[in-house]
Design a protein around this nucleic acid. Structure first.
Lengths: 234, 234
DNA sequence: GCACACAGATCTGTATACAGTTTTGTATAT
DNA sequence: ATATACAAAACTGTATACAGATCTGTGTGC
């Protein structure tokens, strides 16, 4: 049988890194992990090298692979970059996407993000991310989409933590404004609202980070599986 | 002795891919290449996996590594993304960089890009790229810089070809405008001029690509080492 | 002349072994 | 008690071997 082993390993290790199941800064024990995954070190190291290129791991010659720590500056930079790319994507979408595209976006992803009561934080972030990625996709620029996807992977855990600290999802109204601006094909407005939305999130995240990024590493994990009770009235 | 073997292999293979010495679309023979480089397949494959993550190679399970072909759409997308990132970087630089930073930029990289007579096309593109990257660095956003660096690697060969077809470098006056706007800290003007500059380049490249991307693959190589004779008066 | 099938060669995918380095633990001296 | 030196254990880095998949080329049948 076989199947694409490296791709599977890559996905599994990436999932561990993204969810911080491997603690940032820690050295990765190749032998132990390869036994855990039931493969040998060779394909594991191949997968790890991909993740090094994606900046999810550090590689120090002679010492091995390290789960990459996320410092406050990197978090800020990644959010800023995300804002740059998403606002540009919204502008491009206004120019390039069809009315049908926007209808689909509204009916599928936007609609699913409205009521998140009863969802876990992980699920809520996933839906939020999906809406934002869908806009990026409507830009028609696959390289942009790919780049944003990578950025999202690196800050996903921070978004989980931030949301679990805040408890309440306040993006409903903002998403509505973004959706409206897109359907009006008002590029300036779409970029403005989306940019402000991300800035607000970034501020929340900065608070969380200031609160101590090291403590963030410890908790979590169970928090993202707690369910969201209520939603603010908009 | 030893030294970081994988990093070296990575650099060497990347250099081959970026300069299209490995022809796009071609399958890579691991045994042959590993013999060429004087290493075994194991570290070579590790390096190749990094390059897969950077989209310089494709990986098809069961078939191996393929030098990634650059289609017209990808070239367009990469240039568009480059424009988005660079204009945003210029805006950020206006807000964050110090006067001293701009002085250094002007005296070192800007000045070196003015007179390119006698340089090879490869050298001229390198200087152009260095100026643009320096602006990105002044944004203070290292993630942005990293992302742009990766994009540049993927379109470098196209820029070589485009410049060798055009023969004449017309960026002198445009760079001057960008430099001036930066020193005035006029973010809107800097973004506008830089954006227009990249758009112009993109148009030239699109012409080159329409001219036939397949023919582009064949020639080149020697063209980039031809020296630039004259420069337009500005 | 063309399509298909089969066999040989080639190449990829992974496990394993081993050399060399780094880390860890212990014992000794100050 | 602290620092240092040394030895043992653990781990990384790479080569190699082998199994399995893929490709290539030839020959046969239609």
């Amino acid at each position: 049988m076989a199947g694409p082993r490296v791709d599977d390993i890559y996905d599994q290790v990436k999932a561990m890194a993204v969810s911080f199941r491997l603690r940032p800064g820690d050295r990765l024990n190749e032998v132990a992990l390869s036994k855990d995954l039931g493969v040998s070190r060779t394909p594991l190291r191949e997968a790890l090298n991909r993740l090094v290129a994606e900046r999810l791991f550090d590689f120090r010659p002679g010492q091995g692979f390290f789960c990459r720590p996320l410092d406050a500056q990197s978090v800020f930079d990644l959010f800023e970059l995300r804002q740059i790319i998403e606002t540009a994507a919204a502008r491009a979408a206004c120019a390039k996407a069809s009315d049908e595209d926007f209808q689909t976006l509204r009916n599928e992803l936007y609609a699913k993000g409205i009521d998140i009561t009863g969802l876990t934080i992980e699920e809520a972030v996933t839906r939020d991310e999906a809406f934002h990625l869908a806009i990026a996709k409507l830009s028609g620029n696959m390289e942009l989409l790919q780049t944003l996807t990578r950025i999202n992977e690196r800050i996903r855990y921070i978004r989980w933590i931030s949301m679990s600290l805040d408890r309440v999802q306040r993006s409903k109204g903002e998403h509505k404004q973004v959706m409206q601006a897109l359907m009006d094909r008002d590029a300036d407005e779409a970029a403005r609202v989306l940019g402000a939305h991300i800035t607000k999130r970034m501020d929340q995240v900065q608070d969380a980070v200031r609160h101590g990024i090291s403590s963030i590493y410890m908790e979590g994990s169970e928090d993202i599986s707690t369910r969201i009770i209520e939603e603010v009235q908009e």
